[in-house]
Design a binder for these strands. Structure first.
Length: 293
DNA sequence: GCCGGAATAT
DNA sequence: CATATTCCGG
């Protein structure tokens, strides 16, 4: 399904720089839809809408090479401009991208199973727009995954390796892409590395969040864009994000018919993860809020 | 009432 | 199948 035609980006380019949409990143990150829904797209309205639901998640591209972008469904050529009232505001489905998941895992890892509860995780992740529900749901699945793995690979410890021991089918998908800390698999077991010295959960402040998140993630290759998979039908209106940061792409697409290299990504997410667990290089526990991946 | 966790729904 | 939403204890 990643077979994007080349049409999309043509269109994309055209619709891309929407002045109005681009600008209002002044302070409140409000999604286009939200704004529309609130009918507050008129510069005349001095009124500042409450910043409740915003969903600027960080969904970096898989690789620096492959340029992919959000599939923002415009008005379908019809009314790009808002029209869909859709009073019923709904957040777009959260797309647990490998990166996001990694943050999740990191958070859980550094929290310890005990403290790894949705709220805490959510806070630690510092991903704005992330809700407790999101995390809870994901956590649920994650636990399931862990459980599964425990039973299957006992000593194998699919953790470190990218490919989990037992040769897990696609079942792991996303999960397999993140290094699972061993301690997870067996709570009361080998404690080769059960160190959780700090976990200053006390830092549960919710003060500098979006900024922190942005900063943390925005360190590396932050491509603030998330794409909503073409699931038309479900969502009355396409939800886009707004470029709350410079969305500069590499502009590497030379698909003018020069298939030099660049094997089109098979599809889906790439399972690229560099294991820093090098031979002699001792892997430093990845700090939690690192946008490293 | 809030929160966490599983169950259920989309 | 992946998330979301609902339901049920604490």
């Amino acid at each position: 399904m990643r077979e994007d035609d080349s049409t999309w980006f043509s269109k994309w380019e055209e619709e891309l720089p929407s002045p109005e949409e681009l600008m209002p990143l002044s302070q409140t990150l409000i999604t286009h839809d939200l704004a529309v829904a609130f009918d507050i797209r008129n510069p005349n309205s001095p009124q500042q809408p409450p910043p409740p639901p915003l969903l600027p998640l960080q969904t970096p591209s898989s690789q620096p090479n492959s340029a992919e972008f959000d599939s923002a469904e415009l008005g379908g050529g019809g009314g790009a401009t808002g029209d869909e009232p859709a009073r019923t505001l709904k957040r777009p489905r959260l797309v647990w991208t490998p990166q996001l998941h990694k943050r999740f895992v990191d958070a859980v890892a550094h929290l310890g199973i005990k403290n790894a509860v949705p709220k805490t995780i959510m806070q630690l992740m510092s991903v704005d727009g992330l809700t407790r529900e999101n995390v809870a749901s994901h956590l649920q699945k994650y636990r399931l995954y862990l459980k599964r793995m425990q039973g299957l690979s006992s000593g194998g410890g699919g953790a470190g390796g990218g490919l989990t021991g037992g040769g897990d089918p696609a079942t792991d998908h996303l999960f397999a892409s993140s290094p699972v800390p061993a301690h997870f698999l067996h709570p009361g077991r080998a404690n080769s590395d059960n160190f959780l010295p700090f976990v200053p959960v006390a830092a549960l402040q919710q003060h500098h969040h979006q900024m922190a998140a942005a900063a943390a993630v925005g360190h590396q290759q932050l491509q603030t864009q998330y794409r909503q998979i073409g699931h038309f039908g479900s969502q009355p209106n396409g939800q886009f994000e707004h470029p709350f940061l410079s969305r500069q792409s590499q502009t590497v697409h030379h698909r003018i018919g020069a298939p030099v290299n660049n094997p089109v990504v098979p599809s889906s997410y790439v399972e690229d993860m560099e294991s820093a667990t090098a031979a002699n290089g001792r892997k430093v526990l990845t700090l939690f809020p690192t946008g490293d991946d």
